Simulated assay, not measured.
Amino acid sequence: MYPNRAGGAAAYARVGVESDVLSASPHRLITLLFEGADKAIRSAGVHMRDGNKAEKGKAISKALDIVNRGLLAALDRERGGELAERMALLYDYIARLLLKANLHDDAASLEEARHLLGELGSAWREIDTDGK
């Protein structure tokens, strides 16, 4: 018996993502977090437009986890000083936008959170410490 194609493709994708994460530098890991947040927020937007509250909530929860347990947790407040504190405030603001988007089906808040994370992710990719 052969596995179905969809299951095989999903397993292959998981292995690819796990391999990327396991071999990634700290800089690349943060880049992956920004990419994951963007994907989750885009998914939430689709579900919001479709009226699928359960899936919208799951996608926003994933984005919130990435912001709070990934990006915010990765800040080095001791070495980062004032910049790290400002980033923490910005991540807190983004998290509140995501919560507002979820509670009130607020597409504008969802898009603002996506835009801010996109700007931060773009700036992060510009640093490119991996290539130096």
Results as ranks from 00 to 15, higher is better:
residue 66 I to T: 09
residue 34 F to M: 03
residue 120 L to G: 03
residue 4 N to D: 15
residue 34 F to C: 00
residue 90 L to T: 12
residue 29 L to P: 06
residue 101 A to M: 03
residue 40 A to P: 01
residue 99 L to I: 15
residue 119 E to W: 04
residue 15 V to S: 05
residue 30 I to L: 10
residue 47 H to P: 00
residue 25 S to H: 06
residue 70 G to P: 01
residue 128 D to C: 04
residue 49 R to Q: 09
residue 127 I to A: 11
residue 13 A to Q: 12
residue 123 A to C: 00
residue 12 Y to S: 11
residue 118 G to S: 04
residue 77 R to L: 15
residue 95 A to W: 00
residue 25 S to W: 03
residue 40 A to W: 02
residue 41 I to P: 06
residue 83 L to V: 10
residue 57 G to Q: 12
residue 93 Y to I: 00
residue 28 R to V: 08
residue 6 A to M: 09
residue 16 G to K: 10
residue 22 L to K: 09
residue 61 S to R: 12
residue 96 R to M: 07
residue 63 A to S: 07
residue 129 T to F: 03
residue 7 G to M: 12
residue 114 R to S: 13
residue 115 H to F: 15
residue 31 T to F: 03
residue 14 R to G: 06
residue 122 S to V: 09
residue 36 G to E: 02
residue 127 I to P: 00
residue 26 P to I: 01
residue 52 N to F: 10
residue 103 L to I: 10
residue 107 A to D: 15
residue 80 G to H: 01
residue 6 A to C: 01
residue 3 P to W: 03
residue 15 V to M: 11
residue 81 G to H: 07
residue 126 E to T: 13
residue 92 D to A: 13
residue 115 H to I: 08
residue 82 E to Q: 14
residue 79 R to H: 13
residue 98 L to S: 08
residue 20 D to P: 01
residue 95 A to C: 03
residue 91 Y to P: 06
residue 42 R to T: 14
residue 90 L to D: 04
residue 5 R to M: 11
residue 14 R to E: 14
residue 92 D to C: 02
residue 55 E to K: 11
residue 29 L to S: 04
residue 49 R to T: 08
residue 109 S to R: 02
residue 101 A to T: 04
residue 63 A to Y: 06
residue 19 S to C: 05
residue 82 E to V: 09
residue 110 L to S: 08
residue 105 D to L: 08
residue 102 N to M: 09
residue 48 M to F: 08
residue 30 I to N: 01
residue 83 L to K: 04
residue 41 I to W: 06
residue 64 L to H: 03
residue 82 E to W: 05
residue 120 L to R: 05
residue 40 A to L: 02
residue 63 A to R: 06
residue 46 V to R: 11
residue 1 M to P: 12
residue 125 R to V: 12
residue 32 L to K: 04
residue 71 L to Q: 02
residue 105 D to N: 15
residue 76 D to G: 05
residue 100 K to S: 14
residue 59 A to M: 07
residue 62 K to Y: 06
residue 31 T to V: 10
residue 62 K to R: 14
residue 45 G to A: 07
residue 67 V to D: 06
residue 12 Y to H: 11
residue 50 D to R: 14
residue 18 E to T: 09
residue 51 G to E: 05
residue 106 D to Q: 03
residue 75 L to T: 02
residue 54 A to W: 06
residue 32 L to V: 05
residue 53 K to S: 13
residue 91 Y to A: 04
residue 94 I to S: 03
residue 19 S to G: 00
residue 3 P to A: 14
residue 41 I to R: 07
residue 88 A to E: 15
residue 73 A to S: 12
residue 32 L to F: 07
residue 21 V to C: 00
residue 30 I to A: 07
residue 47 H to D: 11
residue 38 D to H: 13
residue 124 W to K: 01
residue 19 S to R: 10
residue 18 E to P: 00
residue 95 A to M: 04
residue 32 L to M: 14
residue 53 K to Q: 13
